[in-house]
Design a binder for these strands. Structure first.
Lengths: 172, 172
DNA sequence: CCGGAATGGTTGTAGCTACAAGTTTGCTGG
DNA sequence: CCAGCAAACTTGTAGCTACAACCATTCCGG
């Protein structure tokens, strides 16, 4: 820890500058579109979307937090707000009395249906449609490497790899 | 705008999920390290670092905002806080009386020196060192494509391409 | 040379996130 | 069977960002 940290060479710096710029600019762009069109944050949308795909449109808070890459306090606040807006409802989990389930309401489902097309269009416009199929796969590989370093336990990976290939069994 | 937005296929979804996860997790990781070690945000660090590389360690607010991918209001607030901490000082720009210059103080310079190694180490650990040289170049290309779609005017590109190749002249 | 638009900034405020505590329920060893 | 620790949340609060408003300069056409 006494230093000896090599500086970044030009190639590395070049890549890092792009990544940092994306990190700074993309969230704002996505948020702006969603807020303007349907009054949702990208994070709120993601939470609702995850619920909409879950069996019974219901998930436990912890599970939802993992899928949305959020901390539990953050999710708790967000769900509380969504509940006030009538898009989600919470109820104690039957099997585990310290757990809480979040369920998408009908209004929440309608909201997802309303929000999805615009959001997908934005993601397409700024990300998907400007990349080649090859680049999409490269991005996937890069993401896997980076995310593995961020989450060595690999808890999140369960979800990342969920869409990789339906045939393959769970990660060994 | 009447819909007709194709949904994402598996390959596209796969890549997008990784990118979204990075968008969500990376900033927090970088912020946490910097805040813990030197009480700085990644954004604050970037601002200070940009100033430290500028001639006279001085930049106009607008220019600094562009390099840090920030809006002017945001930068204004941040610089105000940095000024209170004695890391930066502001003074009216001589050539343009409506403009403001921000200059790194000695304390600010010391702060950058103190912060840089740890931050670079973190960036290395989670990004640079987990990718191959090939992947770094791929990331650069992907970043260029995405950023171009976010900023069609290409104002930011001036900076992105600054490190690409010292030999090449300014973009045509 | 003057009225309006554009440039360059600052400030106020609402809303979201991170961090730190606190609470309840479940688990485990002795 | 119970002490203590862990799991699963919720809540309080400080701090940062976005958005909107505002003010001061500068530029530009007629």
């Amino acid at each position: 820890m006494t230093t000896n940290t090599p500086w970044l060479d030009r190639r590395q710096l070049r890549a890092w500058i792009r990544l940092r710029a994306m990190l700074e600019l993309l969230p704002g762009t996505l948020d702006t579109q969603l807020r303007h069109d349907v009054d949702l944050t990208e994070f709120e949308y993601t939470a609702l979307a995850m619920l909409s795909e879950a069996p019974g449109r219901t998930m436990r808070m912890t599970g939802l937090a993992q899928r949305t890459n959020a901390t539990l306090p953050r999710l708790s606040h967000v769900v509380a707000r969504l509940e006030k807006r009538g898009l989600v409802e919470r109820f104690p989990c039957p099997e585990n009395r310290r757990a809480t389930n979040a369920r998408l309401t009908e209004a929440g489902w309608a909201k997802v249906l309303q929000a999805a097309p615009g959001h997908v269009a934005t993601v397409r416009r700024h990300v998907i449609d400007v990349l080649t199929d090859e680049q999409l796969d490269q991005l996937t590989a890069i993401g896997d490497a980076v995310l593995a370093s961020l989450d060595p336990s690999g808890k999140g990976a369960v979800f990342y790899t969920h869409y990789d290939d339906e045939q393959t069994g769970p990660a060994s």
